[in-house]
């Protein structure tokens, strides 16, 4: 290694180094890592440093950070479960809504059917009324027709009797009213 060279150069350059300063204001002779007289110093201060760092970490930093991390984990999982709850609630609400919708639909259908039945009933009643009216009118008309018919038969009888009497007279007979009446009656009823 370059250490022998540096050993030699160490003394030669010491004057120049005083001017140039060195990095720590000191001159390396060989490898400073192997200067055993500085070992106790480094070991002592390292032990002090490690104890201080251990104390800082174990007493303050690590519990605090792990608490923060656990807290965050708790918050996140809490939020997640809350979100799960809300999701379930939303699902319930959706189901309720669907149910209400279906109920309303069946109700509407029932109302429609009821209304239809009512209307049908009214219509039926009206039809029946009209039918009965029509029947009454028909009966009335029929009775009138029968009256007229009967009237007509009476008139025909009278005309037939008169005509028969006239015909009998014209033929030179004597009109026997009762005989004529009987003959006409017999004929008309015949």
């Amino acid at each position: 290694m370059a250490t022998e060279e540096l050993d030699a150069a160490g003394s030669a350059h010491s004057a120049a180094d005083a001017a140039h300063g060195g990095s720590n204001g000191a001159e390396a002779v060989g490898m400073p890592q192997l200067h055993f007289d500085t070992f106790p110093n480094q070991i002592f201060w390292l032990l002090v440093s490690l104890v201080v760092i251990y104390w800082l970490l174990s007493r303050i930093a690590l519990p605090r950070i792990s608490a923060v991390l656990a807290d965050r984990q708790g918050t996140i999982s809490g939020d997640l479960s809350a979100a799960e709850d809300y999701k379930a609630k939303a699902k319930d609400a959706e189901a309720a809504y669907e149910k209400a919708l279906a109920d309303a639909r069946t109700k509407a259908q029932a109302i429609v059917a009821e209304a239809r039945a009512d209307i049908q009933k009214d219509v039926d009643a009206a039809i029946a009324k009209a039918d009965s009216e029509i029947a009454a009118k028909t009966a009335q008309s029929q009775s009138r027709i029968a009256e007229i018919q009967a009237g007509a038969i009476d008139a025909i009888e009278a005309v037939a009797k008169d005509t028969a009497q006239s015909v009998v007279v014209a033929l030179g007979g004597t009109a026997d009213e009762s005989a004529i009446n009987a003959a006409v009656d017999k004929r008309v009823k015949g």
Partner: peptide
């Protein structure tokens, strides 16, 4: 010739 100075180990001196 001594114009340049290489002291790569100076930085490790404990002082």
């Amino acid at each position: 010739s001594g114009e340049m100075a290489f002291h790569p180990m100076d930085q490790f001196v404990v002082s």
